[in-house]
């Protein structure tokens, strides 16, 4: 593979798309409204699809276009529509309570990005520049996804955090050139996400509790009396 660097179109575009995915992760951190959060997630999935398609173009790998199509159809269209319907049908509160304040969440997010850059860049010296930086961006998205899951008490937001974490995984997987089974792995993961969303609806949480807020769900901790 020819070396890539700044100023080359294929490198710059991939870098730009990866960075937009990360920026959208930050947008999730400060979003307080549920519907807006779902919109940001959908937008992130669209950008991810573009990133996967671009990698498919650069690497000449046809299966990455399939990955991009899955991201676009399932993650950017199906999942947000399903989530919106659940929010409406279960009449969930439209504002999100956060455990950490917005400011603190953002600081933690920046710290996580710094951490992933410091972890990934020094050790991947031999790998191609594009792969290294993609991996650093992907790890940041994964960690911020976890942060979103930790700092939100609402089940829907936890799921959105989980799915944005998954976006980070896909970003990593398409960035590593030639990885086998990418499509199969992503389909398997999508099945899991579909189950979670299905679960929210059919676990009948709504039927038994007045809210999806897990704070209420945790009525017993560890031991029944």
């Amino acid at each position: 593979m020819r070396p890539l660097g700044f100023g080359e179109l294929s490198y710059d575009v991939a870098h730009l798309l990866g960075a937009i995915v990360l920026v959208l992760s930050f947008a999730m951190l400060y979003q307080r409204r549920l519907m807006a959060l779902i919109n940001i997630y959908a937008l992130q999935a669209v950008v991810l699809a573009l990133a996967a398609a671009w990698q498919g173009w650069v690497q000449g790998a046809a299966h990455l276009f399939v990955t991009a199509a899955i991201a676009l159809l399932f993650k950017a269209i199906f999942v947000p529509v399903a989530l919106r319907r659940i929010v409406v049908k279960l009449m969930i509160h439209r504002t999100i309570e956060t455990v950490l304040g917005i400011g603190l969440s953002m600081v933690a997010g920046v710290a996580l990005v710094a951490l992933s850059i410091m972890v990934v860049l020094p050790i991947t010296g031999e790998a191609a520049v594009l792969t290294r930086e993609d991996l650093a961006l992907a790890l940041s998205v994964v960690l911020i996804g976890m942060l979103v899951m930790i700092t939100r008490r609402n089940a829907i937001t936890q799921v959105v955090g989980f799915m944005s974490l998954e976006n980070g995984l896909i970003l990593a997987a398409v960035g590593v050139e030639g990885m086998p089974l990418v499509v199969e792995l992503i389909i398997a993961f999508s099945v899991m996400v579909a189950f979670i969303i299905f679960g929210i609806f059919f676990f009948q949480i709504r039927e038994r509790f007045d809210t999806l807020d897990l704070h209420y769900l945790e009525s017993f901790r560890g031991e029944r009396r």
Binding site: L135, V142, M149, L169, A172, L185, F189
Partner: peptide, 18 residues
């Protein structure tokens, strides 16, 4: 989340092996 991290680990393992 555990399984997601394992997938990330699998990706990185492939990066090491490639």
């Amino acid at each position: 989340v555990g399984i997601a991290l394992a997938l990330f680990g699998t990706t990185i393992l492939y990066l090491a092996a490639r």
